[in-house]
């Protein structure tokens, strides 16, 4: 019988390879299992809400009319946060990566990272004590001058504890996430592409629009999605800053509510059907986050051919 000298018989290297691939596989499965377990838990616990008599649900008109206003409130707060934080975050990241002198850039990057480490209750307290009162004159001006637009309809809140204030606080919280992720991506732009633009006679800004931003696009989308995740799920800051109420279009009056804050404020005293209701609200938040992430993936995938990965 001939033996093939090229065949290896169980060396140490092979064992290490197997252990590592097993560990990696295990970690991957663990993530999926956790996600699935959360989904199952939410669904089972929330189930009574869907089968219960509509008149027993808070508000007395069934789960849909209970959840609809706070879903809209959540989306409004997160949308305000992203509308503010995305352009500012990208601009700050670009400043750090491509404009600031090196020393300043390092310091600034460090400070931005620190912002991300501040607990949300601190942001909530700041929003409640400092930002909300400070915004009252602005709100009154908006109501007086732009009141014909429904979102600025008056009379403005006297305390400043409105959904717009909550959105701004969320923006400040989301900003470091968007900034530090975008900055990392911007710094990874291949020098080759930047030089290609510069050698054609591009100004710095043109170089950024030609090579840095297209390269960073998927990364920016991911950064914004992570930021959105935090904005949608943020509880403490919204609970402290927002004086809640029914769904209203005006952003500068008291009113509106977000899912996360609704759960947090009512959870301690909830039992039975009310508890199931709140968990069902959590399930809805989970689904919203999932859908948003799927959309983001789709946006990234649509431009695959031109991503430079091929």
């Amino acid at each position: 019988m001939t033996t093939n000298a090229l065949r290896r018989n169980g060396s140490k290297g092979q064992a290490g390879d197997k252990v590592f691939s097993g560990a990696a596989l295990g970690a991957g499965i663990l993530i999926l299992a956790t996600l699935l377990a959360v989904a199952i838990f939410l669904f089972i616990q929330a189930l009574p809400t869907f089968t219960a008599d509509p008149t027993l649900i808070t508000g007395g008109e069934g789960f849909a009319s209970y959840i609809f206003p706070i879903v809209i409130g959540t989306v409004i707060a997160a949308a305000i946060a992203l509308l503010i934080a995305t352009p500012v975050g990208i601009a700050v990241a670009l400043f750090i990566s491509h404009y600031a002198p090196r020393r300043l850039a390092a310091g600034l990057g460090y400070v931005i990272d620190l912002l991300a480490a501040i607990p949300s209750v601190i942001y909530g307290a700041w929003g409640y004590l400092v930002l909300a009162p400070a915004l009252v004159p602005t709100f009154q001006w908006l109501a007086a001058n732009l009141g014909f637009i429904p979102i600025f309809a008056g009379p403005a809140s006297q305390t400043g504890k409105t959904i717009l204030t909550a959105g701004i606080v969320l923006a400040v919280m989301v900003l470091p996430i968007i900034t530090s992720l975008s900055r990392e991506i911007f710094l990874q732009t291949p020098k080759l592409h930047e030089e290609a633009a510069l050698a054609l006679g591009a100004t710095r800004w043109e170089m950024i629009t030609m090579s840095v931003l297209p390269f960073a696009r998927p990364g920016i989308v991911s950064a914004v999605m992570l930021g959105l995740g935090r904005a949608l799920g943020e509880t403490m800051a919204v609970a402290l800053v927002l004086s809640t109420g029914g769904l209203i279009p005006s952003l500068i009056k008291s009113g509106n509510q977000t899912i996360a804050a609704e759960i947090a404020l009512n959870f301690p005293e909830a039992f039975g059907l009310r508890l199931a209701e709140l968990i069902a609200a959590g399930l809805v938040l989970f689904v919203i986050t999932l859908v948003v992430n799927l959309i983001a993936r789709a946006i990234i995938a649509r431009h695959k051919e031109f991503s430079g990965a091929n």
Binding site: P190, L192, H193, E195, A196, A197, A199, L200, M210, S211, P214, F215, R217, H303, F306, S307, G308
Partner: peptide, 14 residues
Amino acid sequence: GMVFQRPNPFPTMS
């Protein structure tokens, strides 16, 4: 103008 060592067309452009 300048042509570089490694080809560097803009990957996101046609």
